[in-house]
Simulated scan of single mutants.
Amino acid sequence: MSPDTVSPDTRFRLSSQALPSGSVVGPQQLVPELGGENLSPDLAWELVPEDTASFALTCYDPDAPTGSGFWHWIAWDIPADARSLPLGLPREDAVVKQAANDFGRIGYDGPQPPPGAPHRYIFTLHALPVAELGVDPSAPHVQARFAIFSQQLDAASFTVTYKAS
């Protein structure tokens, strides 16, 4: 059965109380330059695919004027028994590995788009068949993203927006 024919009630799902799907990013998740607190959102997931041995997380802005988008968060080695991440995950977490984002900082950094059209921020949780991704967090995030996307069993996403004035 293809993912498109599976009932939404039985599909892998990702959600956030701080950033409900389709919402506009609020001050808690914005960078300080825009008056924000720059806290990663709380995340929760359910209906995990069979054979999941760990999770990885990405946050991506496909609308950034770079030709290749902008990566706000790349995290992996989230344990298979986890079903949530807290609001404000520390940049140096004891369990979850995080790469430097496109701002050049480890962990999550919120929206800071140039003035103009709204930007989309896609949060995706990737179910992986391996307990450890085997990528050095100090390596460029493209290495972690390649390992994540080439191995994922399934992924759950939601999208939020933000428009700079």
Rank of each mutant, 00 (worst) to 15 (best):
M1C: 04
V6N: 15
S7A: 06
T10K: 06
S15A: 04
A18E: 13
A18T: 09
P20M: 07
S21R: 01
G22M: 07
V24Y: 01
Q29F: 04
V31A: 09
V31R: 13
P32W: 05
P32E: 09
E33L: 08
L34M: 06
L34N: 08
G35H: 04
G35F: 08
G36S: 02
S40H: 03
D42A: 02
W45C: 11
W45D: 05
E46N: 15
E46T: 11
L47A: 15
T52K: 12
L57E: 09
T58V: 14
C59S: 07
C59D: 13
Y60D: 15
Y60Q: 07
D61L: 13
D63V: 11
T66D: 13
T66R: 14
F70D: 13
F70A: 08
F70W: 08
W71A: 14
A75S: 10
A75H: 04
I78K: 12
I78Y: 02
I78G: 05
A80R: 12
A82K: 10
A82L: 03
L87Q: 04
L87S: 10
L87R: 12
G88T: 04
P90K: 12
D93T: 09
A94D: 12
V96H: 08
A99I: 08
A99Y: 06
N101M: 07
R105N: 10
I106M: 11
G107S: 07
Y108T: 08
G110I: 03
P115S: 06
G116W: 00
A117D: 08
H119V: 05
R120F: 08
Y121W: 06
T124H: 05
L125Y: 05
H126K: 15
L128W: 10
A131P: 11
L133F: 00
G134M: 02
D136Y: 00
D136P: 01
P140S: 04
H141A: 03
V142K: 11
A144Y: 09
A144E: 10
F146W: 15
F146S: 13
I148F: 08
I148K: 14
F149D: 13
Q152M: 01
A155S: 07
A155C: 07
A156S: 13
T161F: 12
Y162H: 07
S165M: 11
S165H: 08
S165K: 08
